[in-house]
């Protein structure tokens, strides 16, 4: 279980929503830099698989946005160079870079978000608000892989039966169409069974269904929610009163470091690094458990010791990999 998964999906959803919107609306270099670092840390600890490839893609977007702004916006007083009679200004470049970093970190945030918010968690949120839609989504989520698997099965079977006789495009397309039509029949026919199974279990007996979810709202959820709301209100107040506002045009002007703004930065850093901190804590806890396993049973047999050593080694390797 990932460390953040114990929280209620609704609270987590709210948390990620606020985190992203602050990063987007604050337009404050300090906060965006914080967000970037925090999200790199979180993404590398939660979603290691395929992170490299995703980062390449994110980086391209980052470069594009950074370049786009100075090309289209010619505000600012510090002219770096003139291309085709259009001045490229330092301020526009800086603004572009900041936007790029912001998008980069928000993309990473969505990555972490999607790793944590699996389909059933999202359903838990939407199901509460729209029970019918929730059920429809749950059925769709179930049906998509089922449909895909059946398609592959039919294609395989039909291949052995000589559906794709000649290896040319026309034959292939014809074959695929035939498979699609068979799929439709299959889906409709077996859909009847599903419908029967639903009505047999009282679907439609009551107008309003409950939307059940396994996730409870617990004390820790309440604590997290309150903390998030308080600190976000504080930060949003700062944004609304322009205390955190950065001016880029005509000349870049960072907001002054006041007590209020520093508190805002600290609060935001606290919020943004929360997933990573939770992961670190979890890892420390596991390491402690391993130590107990290693040194706890002194009179354990030789074989057991070897086994625990081996286990430890593999786990270490995996934790090492995670960094």
């Amino acid at each position: 279980m990932k460390p953040l998964e114990k929280y209620n999906p609704g609270v987590l959803f709210f948390y990620f929503l606020l985190l992203a919107s602050i990063a987007m609306f604050a337009a404050n270099p300090v906060m965006i830099a914080t967000a970037l670092m925090a999200m790199i840390a979180a993404a590398s600890s939660y979603t290691r698989d395929g992170l490299g490839r995703a980062c390449v893609f994110f980086f391209i977007i980052f470069v594009l946005t950074s370049l786009a702004n100075p090309i289209f916006s010619h505000n600012g007083v510090t002219v770096l160079l003139v291309v085709n009679d259009n001045p490229i200004t330092l301020e526009a470049v800086l603004y572009g870079v900041m936007t790029g970093v912001m998008i980069f970190s928000v993309l990473l945030l969505f990555r972490v978000f999607s790793a944590l918010m699996t389909s059933d968690r999202l359903l838990c949120i939407f199901g509460r608000a729209f029970p019918k839609l929730g059920l429809l989504l749950a059925m769709t989520i179930r049906f998509v892989p089922l449909f895909g698997r059946q398609r592959r099965k039919i294609e395989n079977t039909q291949k052995t039966l000589g559906l794709y006789k000649n290896e040319n495009a026309i034959d292939t397309i014809k074959g695929k169409l035939a498979v699609m039509s068979a799929m439709t029949t299959w889906g409709l026919e077996n859909g009847i069974v599903t419908a029967d199974s639903m009505s047999a279990r009282g679907y439609g007996v009551r107008r309003s269904r409950t939307s059940f979810s396994m996730y409870r709202f617990e004390r820790s959820d309440a604590v997290l929610l309150v903390l998030v709301i308080l600190s976000c209100t504080f930060i949003f107040f700062g944004i609304a009163t322009d205390m955190l506002k950065t001016d880029f045009y005509p000349r870049m002007k960072l907001p002054p470091f006041t007590v209020y703004s520093v508190i805002c930065y600290v609060l935001y850093a606290g919020l943004a690094f929360f997933p990573f901190a939770a992961k670190l804590r979890d890892r420390a806890h596991r390491a402690a458990l391993d130590r107990v396993k290693m040194h706890g049973g002194s009179e354990s047999s030789f074989g057991e010791k070897i086994r625990s050593m081996y286990q430890n080694e593999t786990e270490e390797r995996s934790t090492f990999g995670e960094q």
Binding site: A138, R142, N190, S197
Partner: peptide
């Protein structure tokens, strides 16, 4: 048919 009677995506659901 075991497969087609199942309505939702998770066991608990």
């Amino acid at each position: 048919r075991p497969d087609m009677q199942i309505v939702t995506d998770k066991v608990w659901h």
